[in-house]
Design a protein around this nucleic acid. Structure first.
Lengths: 333, 333
DNA sequence: ACTCTCCGTGAAACCGCTTTCAGGCATTGT
DNA sequence: ACAATGCCTGAAAGCGGTTTCACGGAGAGT
């Protein structure tokens, strides 16, 4: 494998000159430049990324730590990051934390040792305090996606989950529903609590009481949604609509309703959250709140690049507003 | 950030000794070893990955080039790779080709320049010939997943698509169907052709003729499946079952059937291929052929590690056999 | 007691690139 | 015509590790 030395000898210039045409840092006379380019082409020379990184102390790579590489939920975040990172000629090195704090910590150390220029983290288990430490004391730009941590808000990209919960609930209220049940998410996750808050907020706006009997926990998973739905039906609380904290629990709820012989949306209306791929494929197709994962990933990447001084200081959206997409799972009571 | 020199000075040994305890290459006396470890802990020293890679010419990273990072289809491949790579303490750097040959080529060069120790590629657009060149002349171990290329079979991890097509078709035949339509995939992709071959093979086994009128191309996408289904219905060829070349076109077909007022499986039975997440969420849940993406990713990673001499020469499955999962979309005619 | 191994250790040479520094040459100003 | 100003260029010093090589001392063999 040819080195810069080989190129310099073939082109009869110094290594420094080769480096300069390679990086365009300093003007080089057209004659020498041409000779260098010719030599590069002839040898099929590719600069050694390690040597370059060692000399410059920059890796031209950014690290992404996500809960689950390529899950239905987080996959698009990674994709969003990749799109902008790759467009800048950088690379992405990935690692996943599987929503376990020990693994998340390990992966973080892992990526730091790799000396990526910046880190984008989407973690579920790590506490806000520790995340704040990561952002502030790790010695490289760290961007947090999917969490809103006030202490480091300028480094967070997140969806306004309270507004999302309110949006979903309000949509049902507008269709005339008055008794609306909620299948809550995993309550140790901020998102779940925020969506519940939004639900309460929308009820309050309409002078409706919040009733414990109308809330069951679905844990953000399909099976949990299924069981939560059965619980709610058993309580016989007379609701006509359900807001599920995410699409997966909505899918479970749908199954429970179908098995019970209740029709959606004729008997019960249903709204989900996230707009995963499956929302579109469920029957009836699920009305849900869009969480723009890909855009959030992009925004996180921009934020990181800006911190690195690679990107111009473009205005980056950090708080995303939820949007509701209407499909076929909601009707008037 | 402390360097190996700082450690060596604090521990009053040479850099060489520090390096030796770090890597365990050569025995070091217990006293010095302890001093070194103490110094490392005290300084919070982390070896510089670039310097190490430059000196050893190994990156401890493997590259993954996939069509779509984190799509429903390919996501699990990446996940499988990551699982084994991470378990060995290596890293993964990813890039995606978006099924366009120019991008695939660019990403390949990209990763090569990054000097990853090995490359795992899952590409759609690159020709078999070029892939063979990649595998043989790129100077580092390259493993191909999702394609069977005879010339480099020992470096390929793939599903037996012919057997898969036959399996799906045979399943319908066994349920008593005699006129079975096929929604084919994108015919420039080998997988699509192989599945069609399997379909023909199963028909032949049962002395049934292959009829052009029973085949429509769905291009592996939902909308294509939808239109293919409408085409087939229009031709009025009297089939009672459909084998779709993948789950996405099956989803489209399902939609077309529903809109036409035909019930699945009562009027028409349907089998898909891939076992994507959506197969489970469709209504009725789709009977389909499982493609074990995660296992294939793992196998590819093992193959790469074996080629690097990192893993023992474990026996790695390269050709995977399809398995059919029965759900609710098939019944007797 | 003397030589022969063998083992642990440090000095120093790389790995391949970037970047500083100083010098040479061609321009420009007067 | 001469000094001053720039612009290009090459030599060389890093960047932070690994690895070769030679050496000193301890243990083994005779």
């Amino acid at each position: 494998m040819p080195t810069i030395r080989d190129v310099s000898q073939l082109a009869k210039v110094s290594q420094a000159t080769v480096s300069r045409v390679l990086n365009g840092t300093v003007p080089v006379s057209p004659i020498k430049r041409a000779a260098v380019l010719e030599a590069i082409a002839q040898l099929g020379y590719q600069p050694n990324a390690f040597a370059r990184s060692l000399a410059t102390n920059r890796s031209r790579a950014i690290g992404a730590l996500v809960s689950e590489l390529s899950s239905a939920v987080y996959g698009d975040i990674v994709r969003g990051i990749e799109a902008v990172v790759e467009a800048r000629g950088l690379h992405m090195v990935v690692s996943s934390g599987h929503a376990r704090s020990d693994l998340e910590r390990r992966s973080f150390a892992f990526l730091k040792e790799r000396r990526t220029d910046a880190l984008i983290v989407q973690v579920d288990a790590t506490s806000e305090g520790e995340l704040a430490t990561w952002v502030r004391q790790s010695g490289l730009p760290v961007v947090v996606v999917g969490r809103h941590i006030p202490a480091i808000a300028e480094r967070c990209v997140y969806l306004d989950n309270v507004a999302g919960g309110a949006l979903a609930t309000r949509h049902l209220l507008e269709r005339g529903h008055r008794r609306i049940a909620h299948i809550a998410g995993l309550m140790r996750i901020t998102d779940a609590r925020d969506r519940l808050t939004g639900y309460r907020q929308a009820l309050a706006e309409n002078d409706l009481p919040f009733e414990d009997v109308l809330v069951a926990e679905g844990g953000f998973v399909e099976d949990g949604g299924y069981r939560a739905m059965l619980q709610l039906l058993e309580r016989d609380a007379g609701f006509t609509a359900v807001f599920a904290a995410n699409d997966q629990s909505a899918a479970g709820a749908l199954k429970a309703l179908r098995e019970t012989g209740l029709r959606v949306p004729d008997d019960i209306s249903l709204v989900g959250f996230d707009d995963l791929l499956i929302a579109h494929y469920l029957f009836p197709a699920l009305t849900t709140v869009i969480q723009p994962f890909a855009e959030m990933g992009q925004a996180a990447a921009w934020l990181a690049l800006t911190a690195l001084g690679i990107d111009d200081d473009k205005e980056v959206t950090r708080r995303f507003d939820p949007v509701l997409v209407e499909r076929d799972s909601v009707a008037a009571p």
